[in-house]
Structures are given as C-alpha cells and as structure tokens.
Design a binder for these strands. Structure first.
Length: 281
DNA sequence: TCATCACCTGGAGA
DNA sequence: ATCTCCAGGTGAT
C-alpha cells in the first residue's frame, strides 16, 4: 500500500512543470537555477550540487490537500491515475523565463530553447559523474544581445526574455516580494512584463511563487473544463478565453475547486494529456 | 470589449 | 520534395 505522500518522480517531472530534465539510467538529472539535481525513485534520493530550498514541497500536507481537492469524480479519477504527482517549487527566475518561452510552443521545443540558453549563458558544472550547464544568471541574460538570444532559437520570444531579465535585474520584479504577496498582486505584477499574459503568469505563480490558487488555463485546461465541467462553468466555450473571461473564470474555478485549485489543475492536466497520448520529456 | 492575425521554430502529416 | 498546420499564448490593430 503506497502512502499518499509518496512522491513519484517520473510522473512529477513529466507533468509539464519542468523542462530541463533528462533520464539517465535510473536517475533523473535536472537543472534548477544554479543547482544541478539528481533524483532517484528507488531507493529514493535527492542529491543537489547546492543548497536546495524544499524543491519537492515536503512541507505540503498531501493527505489534507488530496482530500480537499477530490471534490468530484473527475478530480478523484485524475488523482487515482497519477499517484505521487506533486507540485514542484522551482527556481523562480528559471520558471519565469521557461514559461515566457512556452508561449505557442511545444514541450519539446521549450526544452530545446532552454537547453540552448543554458549552453550559451549558463555555468558548466560537474556533479557526481555528470557535467551540465546551469541556468543563466539574471544579470547574464539581462546583458545578452538580441543576436545571442536569437541564436538560441527563441524567435519572437527573444525580446520578451531580454526585457523580462532586465526587469528582474533592475528589481522591478522581485521574486522574494512576490512569494510573500497575495495572488492578485503577484499576477498583476507579472503581467506588466511583455510576454506574460494570464496563463504564463499563473504558471509562474503556481510553480515557483507558492500560489496554489493559481490555475493556468491553456488549451488543455480549457478542453478539460469543456469536457467535464461544461455545466459548472457555463461561459466556457471552445473559443479562446479572452482577458476578461479569464479572470472571471478563474474566480469561479477557485470557488469550486478550492484553495488548492492549482493542485487539481496539475492532476487534471496530467490525466488529459496522457489520455491523448501526448509526449513528455 | 471583442475578434483577427502575425509571430520564430521544429516536427508531423498530406 | 514542398507545403501546410499545429504546438500548453501574447500583443498589436
């Protein structure tokens, strides 16, 4: 009998939260900011090249959260299908840049772009027997030229990344403050950055800034709401979710799914993509 | 306020 | 081979 707070590494990494991970033999090797991490399922271990601040959110009371979000058959089934799926607490800057790059792009392409950024701007690091590049530092990316960013195949996202990095470098965006701020304040602040809309802001808030009421609404989430919750959220259609609708919808979602709505989203998202046999990392 | 459209890029399918 | 369409969106008009 598996304990409900047991983390399944494979499922967690392959759930669209993180991109800079590779499976090497029985271990998952990944980059989180300036740290290199190695995760192993059995026997369970987490090794880090640096000090890591609760990457796997051990402080979350999973029994409580899972009970809280299992409010209907759909979420209940999603939780059952992905036992051990957990939210990760990512390095905020890496998460911020990652999801700016995610716009109109596939998981494989996002990974490709981020790996290019690490190779060009990151620090080469040896850990255990492995060697890889860490994520670029804020200052480095802020001072990168457009040509360098375009060489990383970011395309139209290159200018977004540059400006976003500059905003952090100048302290216009301060992740420590945002971690302490409430959800609305955080979203509003992030959306001032070019290239960050509602969906990307929700991803950053959920995956790196401890906002569990964030519920990113993308094509998949929209499909899920339409498929399983059409009655509950009457204004959801197959058409793109407009700015005004997004905020209203989000309010209704939190009202229905509760304070851990972000966790429900993660389970639902994982279930529906697996159901459609979409590939992960 | 809302609908349309372009946008870099790589990969899949015609 | 070459083209078209799409991929976990956003911003400009």
């Amino acid at each position: 009998m598996q304990k409900t707070d047991a983390i399944n590494i494979e499922i967690t990494i392959n759930s669209g939260q993180v991109f800079l991970w590779n499976k090497i033999e029985e271990q998952w090797l990944g980059v989180n900011g300036q740290d290199v991490l190695i995760l192993r399922q059995s026997p369970f271990s987490l090794k880090s090249s640096g000090s890591i601040d609760n990457f796997l959110r051990k402080d979350d009371d999973l029994n409580k959260i899972l009970k809280n979000i299992s409010i209907d058959k759909t979420v209940g089934e999603a939780v059952k299908q992905s036992p051990g799926l957990r939210l990760i607490r990512q390095d905020p800057f890496q998460c911020y840049i990652s999801f700016i790059c995610s716009s109109n792009s596939s998981i494989q392409n996002i990974k490709f772009m981020l790996e290019n950024l690490c190779r060009k701007f990151g620090t080469k690091k040896e850990f255990e027997v492995h060697e890889l590049h860490t994520f670029p530092k804020v200052e480095t990316l802020a001072n990168a030229t457009m040509k360098e960013l375009l060489d990383c195949k970011l395309g139209f996202r290159a200018k977004y990344v540059k400006k976003a990095a500059e905003a952090v470098n100048s302290n216009k965006i301060n992740f420590k403050d945002l971690q302490k701020a409430d959800y609305q304040t955080t979203i509003r602040s992030l959306k001032e950055i070019l290239g960050i809309g509602n969906k990307v802001a929700d991803c950053i808030a959920l995956f790196s800034l401890d906002k569990m009421e964030a519920f990113p609404i993308d094509r998949w989430t929209q499909r899920i709401l339409l498929k399983y919750y059409k009655k509950k959220f009457s204004n959801i259609t197959e058409k793109p979710v407009t700015e005004k609708k997004y905020e209203k919808l989000h309010d209704e979602i939190v009202e229905y799914f509760g304070p851990y709505a972000g966790y429900s989203q993660q389970f639902l998202f994982k279930m529906e993509r697996d159901l459609n046999k979409k590939s992960w990392l």
